[in-house]
Nucleic acid binder design. Structure first.
Lengths: 181, 181
DNA sequence: CCCGTTCCATACGGTGCCGTATGGTGACGA
DNA sequence: TCGTCACCATACGGCACCGTATGGAACGGG
């Protein structure tokens, strides 16, 4: 975000901007804090306020993300500048916060810590990837409607599945003859 | 990628650069084509050359990505600039190519088209998200070693699971009383 | 009525990058 | 030996942006 274009978009000039903020970085820092509050803390608090069972909370989170109207452009913009010295710590903080929350949800569902963690990681990875697809190839995603709902259903099913065969056959490593198919 | 910094990193100057390339965009276009070839076409061809069953190919793809040594910085850089007029089409092309290939793998595993597509979408989303985490919060990912392998196993299990209850109970929509837990 | 404070605009210097113009150097064949 | 050509450097103009300096306009209180 550059301040000169921002100023003209607001019908103002740099002069006025630099009266409200000492520097561009100060604006960025303020915006980052706002973003963290609105996009993470507030969401978690809202989910916690509703006294729903953890599975339903997870479903809400997932379907909310994988069904159409995604207003998550901020996440995308920040992921794109993940290396910026001001963005990096903020991004790390919300990632940790979100991952932590998802992990506790899975723990409340009865998964032991390590497994809950793995599931949370996969779930959040899927969310991040969905964001990228939304921007770089939206036409490849299911269109809003029944296809989109079916996809969301598939995602929650895959993430919440009991996965009985997890340590039944510990993954044939690279060069082996054939697989279970 | 800027050409002046690039030139100094090569111990050269802009003058010589503009002798080899007509413009900066020409370099970018060439790099994009190279990237697509090396990161997508070549990978698919290599997987197809080995006469392995589709499940094993999928496992190789997944474990290759979700186990440590990921040399995928190019993907990340391009995802970050997904809106660039030259990057966008290239990104869309490889996304379509990769998604298409993963979909055919799931089809070869016996999934009907719509389901294969959904699974491919989830798998590729997970990959993209993994990339983002690798950059923005690598310390939250399982460290290279047994934890990382366990995570990779979990991912392949989740993505390849038979998921018997897919259309058994079609997802309780938002405000319902309780869930199956 | 005048002064200070708030808020905004204009104007300027500085920086990093793009792309071009132009000159220089070495190799190589006529 | 001399041109020619591939290859590279220097130098310049231009642009977009950052940040500062400075000058108002509006307004309220002494």
């Amino acid at each position: 975000m550059a301040v000169e274009p921002l100023a003209v978009r607001l019908g103002a000039t740099k002069g006025s901007f630099y009266w409200h903020f000492r520097s561009r970085d100060e604006l960025i820092a303020a915006a980052l804090q706002l973003w963290r509050q609105a996009s993470t803390t507030a969401v978690i608090e809202r989910l916690e306020a509703a006294a729903a069972p953890p599975e339903q909370r997870l479903r809400q989170l997932i379907t909310h993300v994988f069904a159409p109207p995604a207003r998550t452009s901020a996440d995308l913009a920040l992921l794109a500048d993940a290396d910026h010295p001001l963005v990096a710590p903020a991004l790390a903080a919300v990632t940790e916060q979100r991952l932590g929350y998802i992990t506790t949800l899975f723990r409340q569902l009865g998964f032991p810590p390590a497994r809950a963690r793995r599931r949370a990681l996969l779930a959040y990875s899927a969310y991040l990837g969905q964001l990228q697809l939304l921007r770089s190839a939206p036409n490849l995603l299911p269109k809003p409607g029944p296809a989109s709902s079916a996809y969301a259903d598939h995602v929650v099913a895959a993430l919440l599945a009991d996965q009985p065969s997890t340590n039944a056959a510990p993954t044939p490593r690279l060069t082996r003859g054939t697989a279970t198919a």
